[in-house]
């Protein structure tokens, strides 16, 4: 499998990455280089093999239903590039 320019544009859109037009063709080459190289995984028969979900062999730990966090609105805003009255501000979103 390999990607073309349209595919690269589509996945860049999906990943919300601005990609200058002159970077599209080189990216096609780079991605295909990687994809052709990972193609060797097809050699392996994986029939009946379960995908690995985690290397950790224990029960999922759970927290108690207790409020232990929050009330940090000031700290949340410290790094906010757009922040006002404890809201994060973004360009108008049209639904």
């Amino acid at each position: 499998m390999s990607v073309d320019k349209d595919t690269v544009r589509r996945i860049a859109k999906l990943a919300r990455l601005a990609l200058e037009e002159e970077r599209v063709e080189p990216m096609v080459q780079e991605l295909n280089g990687i994809l052709n190289w990972v193609e060797q995984l097809k050699e392996v028969n994986v029939d009946g093999v379960a995908p690995l979900t985690s290397v950790v062999e224990q029960r999922l730990k759970m927290r108690d239903d207790v409020v232990t966090d929050g009330n940090v609105a000031d700290a949340l805003m410290v790094n906010a590039p757009g922040g006002e009255d404890h809201f994060f501000i973004v360009p108008k979103v049209v639904e």
Binding site: R63, V67, D69, G70, N71, A73, F87, F88
Partner: peptide, 26 residues
């Protein structure tokens, strides 16, 4: 529930903006 699904912040309705938000939720 008192707290959120994956964090210890409160779930109450109608609180001040971003007051019931942990660093996990943000």
């Amino acid at each position: 529930s008192n707290a959120k699904l994956f964090s210890g912040a409160a779930t109450e309705f109608g609180a001040e903006p971003n007051s019931q938000v942990s660093f996990v939720d943000a």
